[in-house]
Nucleic acid binder design. Structure first.
Lengths: 329, 329
DNA sequence: CTGTTAGCGCGTTCAA
DNA sequence: TTGAACGCGCTAACAG
C-alpha cells in the first residue's frame, strides 16, 4: 500500500501539500496540483480511509438496523429493498453504512449495545421495523446519544427523525378502491399486531372509511401471521363480502383460506411485495416503495448529522394490482 | 469519548499497560489488571477500533459481494440467508464484514473496483452467485491481490477458495427420489443457464441418473427464469411424467404451467427456499442451507487470511418436501 | 512486570 | 503558496 508520504516524495512536495490537493483545499497552485495528481496516478495511490478518519475525527458510520425475522416472515424482500436503497443513497452521499441484524444485538443490555456501536464508530443509525416490544432500542433512541432515523415508528426528538408512509390514508385508499370496485358493504378487516405502531394507523384508516361509507367492519388481529389470518378468514370470511388485510402475507393466508373453504371473496393486501404475484391470483394492494423509503431515511440521517433537528417525514405510496403475469418476465 | 490515556491516568499506570490488558497480553500482574479493569469500567471506556486498526495494521474487512437481482429474482430469501450467516460467523470470528451489492460496482473498471476496495480497507471478499459473465470479478480473483472465497463457482488458487454444494449429487439425489416415488420414466429437465457453473454440475447429476435408470430425459434451458420454465413446461410438459427443475423458481413456473394447461405432473425443484411453500402445493426439492454455506465461506476466508492456501470445500445438502402447512406457523 | 517511545497514515495548524 | 510539525488513539518493540 503506497502512502501519502511516498506520493509526496515522488512529487517532490510535502505531505501536507498532497493532503491538500486530495481534499480540494484552496491555495494550491495549479502546477503543484498537476504534479501531485500525476504522482498519485503513477503510484496508484489510494488514500487510507482509516487513517483519514482517525486524523480528521470526522468519522461517522451509520448502522442499518434490520429485523430479519425468519420466523414470521421468511421471505424478506422488504429488508433487501431497504438495504439496497440505503446503500445506494449512502454511496451518493459519501457516507459509510453497516448493516446490523437485530439478532446480533439480541439479549444485550443497553450499555453493551451502546458500547458495541461506539467501538464500531457508529454514531448514527436507521431502525427498520422497530416494534413496541424493542424496549432497549427505545431507550437507545431516547437517550439521544446517537442520531437516529426510525422507519415506521413514531420517534421524534432533537436527534431522531421518523420516516413514514401515511398508513391511515393508504389503508383508507386501498380499502376504498376495493369497496367501490366490488360494491362491498361488509368487511372483514384483519389487522396486524394489537397495539402496534402501523397497525393502529391502518386501523384508523379503515375506521374512517367505514364511517364514511357506512360499512360494517369486523376487526380481528392477525398479528401479521399468515396462519392466523388464514384461520380468521376461515371463521369469518363467509360473513363478509370483502377481506382487507393489513399485510400482504396475511392476505395470502386469507386467500388460501377462501380457496380451502371454497368461497370467493376479494382480498386486498398492504405492502406491495412481489411475492404477491407468486400466489397466482390478482390482488389489490398498497404499494410501498421500500427502496425509496430507505433512501429518504438516509437523507434524514444526513440532515441530523449536519445539525438539523429531528422531524417526521412522510413518503408517498401507491395502489397496485399485482398478479402472476406481472412479475414472471 | 474517553481515550486510553485517560484510563491510564485514572488507573495510575502507563498507556501501554492498559493496552496490554485490553488485548490480553501476558505479563501483567493480577493487581494492575484489576486496577485497569476498574478504571475502564468506571470511565465507560470503549476502545477505538479505528485507531487500533491503524496502529496494529491488522485491519482487514471482508466484503460480502451479493447479487441482488431484482429483475430475475424478486424474492431474495437466499441472499438474506447468506448475509446473516456470514455476519454471525464474522462476529464469532471477530472480523468485520461489509455488504456490497453488485449493482454498486456496476460499470466500474477493474482498477476502479480495486481502488474502491482498497480505500475501504477491504482486502478479502466473498462472492455470492458469481456468473461466467462477471469478467471483472474473474480478473479480480485471478490477480490474487485479495483473499477471496467464491460460493458456487469453481475458483481456486493460492488466495482463493471455493465453497460448494455438491450440485451433481444433489440433483441426482432429488431426481432419483422423485423418479422412484412416482415411478417416472420420462423426464423433462429444465436446466439453468447454458454453460453456467452450477447448471453444468446439475446437468451431470441428471445425466448420471438417466444412465443408471435408463430414463428418457428432455433437456431445456430455462435460464433460471420462471417465465421460460413456464413456457417450456407448457410445450413439453405433456410428454413427460416428471418435471425436474434446476431451481425452485423455475419449478414454480412449471407448476403453474401444468395448472394452466390442466395436467398433473410431479415437479421437483432445487434450493429449498421457503417461498416454495407459498405456492400452496407440495414439492420435492433440494434443501441447501444457505446460512450454513455462508458461515463456511467466512471460515474459509479466515483460513486464507491466516495464510492457508485456497481450496475447494463442499457443504452438505438435504432433500425436503415443502408445502404450505410447513411454513405458515 | 511496567513504562517510555516510536510510529501507523493522514489532517491541520502555523510559520516561513 | 508551501512545508514542518504536531496529534488523532492505539499497538508494539524495547528498556528498565
Amino acid at each position: 500500500m503506497v502512502t501519502i508520504k511516498e506520493v509526496a516524495d515522488y512529487a517532490g512536495v510535502a505531505i501536507s501539500t498532497v493532503s491538500k490537493v486530495l481534499n480540494n483545499y484552496p491555495n494550491v497552485s495549479e502546477t503543484t496540483k498537476k504534479k501531485v495528481r500525476k504522482a498519485i496516478d503513477e503510484l496508484h495511490y489510494v488514500p487510507n480511509t482509516i487513517a483519514a478518519a482517525l486524523s480528521s475525527k470526522q468519522y461517522a458510520r451509520v448502522g442499518l438496523v434490520v429485523n430479519l425475522n425468519t420466523q414470521t416472515q421468511a421471505i424478506d424482500e422488504i429488508t433487501m429493498q431497504y438495504l439496497s436503497g440505503a446503500m445506494n443513497k449512502a454511496r451518493e452521499k459519501n457516507i459509510e453504512v453497516v448493516t446490523i441484524f437485530y439478532s446480533m444485538l439480541e439479549g444485550m443490555k443497553l450499555d453493551e449495545i451502546v458500547r458495541y456501536f461506539q467501538s464500531q464508530s457508529i454514531f448514527a443509525m436507521i431502525f427498520y421495523g422497530l416494534s413496541k416490544e424493542d424496549e432497549v432500542f427505545h431507550q437507545l433512541i431516547n437517550m439521544q446519544m446517537f442520531k437516529c432515523v426510525v422507519v415506521d415508528a413514531p420517534f421524534v426528538n432533537e436527534n431522531t427523525s421518523s420516516v413514514w408512509v401515511d398508513n391511515a390514508k393508504a389503508q383508507y385508499d386501498v380499502a376504498k378502491r376495493a369497496v367501490i370496485d366490488d360494491n362491498s358493504k361488509n368487511i372483514l378487516y384483519i389487522a396486524g399486531k394489537k397495539n402496534g405502531y402501523v397497525t393502529d394507523c391502518r386501523l384508523e384508516g379503515i375506521k374512517e372509511l367505514a364511517r364514511e361509507k357506512d360499512l360494517k367492519v369486523k376487526i380481528c388481529y392477525g398479528d401479521f401471521s399468515e396462519l392466523k389470518a388464514r384461520n380468521i378468514a376461515m371463521e369469518y370470511g363467509r360473513e363478509a363480502d370483502l377481506i382487507v388485510c393489513a399485510s400482504d402475507l396475511m392476505a395470502i393466508g386469507a386467500m388460501n383460506a377462501c380457496i380451502d373453504i371454497d368461497i370467493f371473496r376479494p382480498v386486498c393486501g398492504f405492502d406491495g411485495i412481489t411475492l404477491m404475484g407468486y400466489v397466482g391470483k390478482q390482488m389489490l394492494t398498497v404499494k410501498q416503495n421500500f427502496y425509496r423509503i430507505s433512501q429518504v431515511a438516509v437523507e434524514e440521517i444526513c440532515l441530523l448529522l449536519s445539525g438539523e433537528k429531528g422531524r417526521s417525514r412522510i413518503v408517498e405510496h401507491r395502489l397496485v394490482k399485482l398478479y402472476y403475469q406481472d412479475i414472471i418476465c
